[in-house]
Design a protein around this nucleic acid. Structure first.
Lengths: 195, 195
DNA sequence: CCTACCGATCGGTAGG
DNA sequence: CCTACCGATCGGTAGG
């Protein structure tokens, strides 16, 4: 029972931290801000966490893991490149809607991760990028997609999807998914009028 | 002569600040970092600027003004919505390539602007957004563009273009402009295969 | 443009 | 989980 309370309290602190990091940025958020938000004295925060950096690690790594697992599932399925891209769009939206604040922090504040976790983060991101590009190139080879540079296309799509962290407040998931799917697939699909 | 030296030195400080704000973030950059970068003692910085906030204002507002002027030129020209969008893509790339560090700071650190400048910044952004959406809706009305929600489309295009601040290191302007133009125009153009 | 220094705030610890 | 407190660092000023 005591343990459960402690775990919950820790999660409350992490969630409050995600909100503050999103709103003010990691560096501009103080432990005192966080303490006042969860109704504790600043020093009491350290009964639940080891450091401010740990909070950022927890938030970013949970998100990174979701993306890793999601990508693995997509890569293992036997479907067309186009359907894989659509699944990845859904993956981004699922993660964003599951915890909008965390997703935003993951997206904007990862550069403040401590050395070890930063390295791990960048490795996970690199793997994700490699797999994403494989799908793009597979679609290009099968003459389903059309583009010149897969690096540019990958980065641009990721940026488009990262807007969903903001769009969450205005649109429901299905609405956003449909419009984003249309825009992204149209951007890279073959058989369209030339610009 | 003295004045010219002073102006140049101020610009050196502003440019160094843009580099640091881009690399470490505004809040994580100290006046001591900046001073050591330009080879001065921390207090000597204040012979050239009034405050750290002023540096951010200068950087962000110069960029904001470039976008405002660029948009005004586009809106005054008598060309098709599609050509206007292409001009705006070029505008983003011109600004990004003109000063990559400033463009990045403008994009990522504006939320740390002091109250008055933040208000001004948001007003300029709102005007830009309104004009951009007008072009999108005009193209939709003329059955040139196809999309459901112009707010989503606007935000997604802006995000795509903001990637150019990173892509600068890897690609030249023409290369990036061509690929981005293709992707963006294809995303919204009519007469393409359905996804 | 420097030396010297200010009050405020930071992340975090000691001890209970 | 609190009170009390630490050393470090912050943006910025005084005075020359």
């Amino acid at each position: 029972m005591e343990t459960i309370i402690k775990i919950n309290k820790k999660q409350v602190i992490i969630d409050a931290a995600a909100d503050l990091f999103k709103e003010k940025g990691y560096k501009a958020t103080s432990i005192r801000d966080l303490a006042s938000k969860v109704g504790l004295e600043p020093s009491s925060i350290y009964s639940h966490i080891r450091s401010k950096e740990d909070l950022l690690c927890e938030i970013c790594m949970v998100c990174a893991l979701k993306f890793s697992v999601g990508m693995t599932n997509v890569m293992e399925s036997q479907i067309s490149p186009r359907k894989k891209i659509k699944l990845l769009i859904s993956l981004h939206l699922d993660i964003a809607y599951d915890n909008p604040a965390s997703a935003t922090v993951f997206n904007d504040e990862w550069k403040f991760l401590p050395e070890l976790e930063l390295k791990e983060f960048l490795e996970l991101r690199k793997k994700y990028e490699t797999n994403f590009k494989k799908i793009l190139l597979r679609g290009k080879k099968k003459s389903k997609f059309e583009f010149i540079n897969e690096d540019i296309v990958f980065n641009v799509i990721i940026k488009m999807l990262s807007w969903s962290y903001i769009g969450i407040n205005k649109y429901n998931k299905a609405e956003l998914r449909d419009e984003l799917s249309c825009l992204i697939i149209n951007a890279i699909d073959k058989h369209k009028s030339k610009s």
